[in-house]
Amino acid sequence: MKPQAAILPKLKTLARGEPSLLAAWLREPVTLESVTPLILAIIAGCAAYGFGLGLWRAPLQGVYVAIKMPLLIFFTLLVNGMINGMLGQLLGSGMSFRQTLMACLMSFAIFGLIVGSLSPIIIAMVMDSPRPGQAGASDWYRLFLLFNTAIIAFAGIVANHKLLRLIQSFSGSTAIGWRTLISWLAGNLFVGAQLSYNLRPFFGNPELPVQFLRDDPFDGNFYEAVWTMLSSATDSITSIILWLCLLALILPMLLALKRFNAP
């Protein structure tokens, strides 16, 4: 079978997200054939979507973001690989370190497939938009940010839902599936947010130059920036909205943990 012929059925399996098929995939020994579709889906999907994100600022910014988005995912997996593997075993997922890494790769690959499939729409939207500096550009930029936040949230929810079903199928327990997912998700979000801060810019602020990384990529951290923003928000409505966003992020995790932590 030609390599591309082997990759396409795997990508289809991934998109369908059938837990028993994904679990069987996890049980396979690691070969180039089993890992390549996942890596390809992440690189191709995130690069295409990243290009669309940066394109509005400048085509070169699009190329930069196309490189950085897959890198962000691989760096997050690299930093969290060890702790995710430990937590997976500790919480009874039944997965080894390799299987944990593969499961996370699968989840990110599903994310890549979704955002990649939407990238033509994003690129078309950018082509049909007012350029930076033109009339209506700032309103459009806000809309663009909102639209992409929704896309990323949607892709993230779907990818994690598939991952949850996979862990539940693998461990044979609903509660273990939830606990493991939440622990991985919390770690990946925590580190991913910081790494995205280090790898900024992604959307590309029109008032700042086109750059691969900012001049001071390792100066400051995401959480301090959020804290500064929260404490300096003079407008009370803005402040309330920011705090509500933060609560909306943390509360579901705490509730799910509480629900599934009972013996």
């Binding site: 028993s20 679990a23 039944g94 199928s169 044979g172 327990s173 509660a175 273990i176 009972a262």
Partner: peptide, 18 residues
């Protein structure tokens, strides 16, 4: 060697197995 996990076919999974 990695554990072979139980194959779950039923949609209803147990709540706890610790």
């Amino acid at each position: 060697p990695e554990l072979t996990p139980p194959s779950v076919t039923s949609p209803t999974l147990p709540k706890q197995s610790s």
